[in-house]
Amino acid sequence: IWQNYLDTTPQRTKLIDVFMAFLVVVGGLQFVYCVIAGNYPFNAFLSGFSATVGQFVLTASLRIQTNAENKADFGEVSPERAFADYVFGSLILHFFCVNFI
């Protein structure tokens, strides 16, 4: 599988995947810290954690939308449009996170 993945995935998608992996690691670290140190400022934990989760999900959406195999499902969404949407979604997400922390 791994070899197959390395062979077929375009460079840009790999970049996205690395970013997603990074987000998973950050989210996991936050969660572990929360478990160890307690969740006293619960809103801070929540906003940090949901920032990673939300960003992960949005990035996954971007990955899905820009994937050439999913062309049929997204007739109206070009990759450029997908990227603009991604920026829009991320901005809103970060606004709420910063407001909530």
Partner: peptide, 15 residues
């Protein structure tokens, strides 16, 4: 499409 729509809605909407 379901994935994109729902996950976006949930992540941002819950926050």
């Amino acid at each position: 499409r379901v994935y994109v729509a729902y996950c976006t809605w949930f992540a941002i909407g819950t926050l």
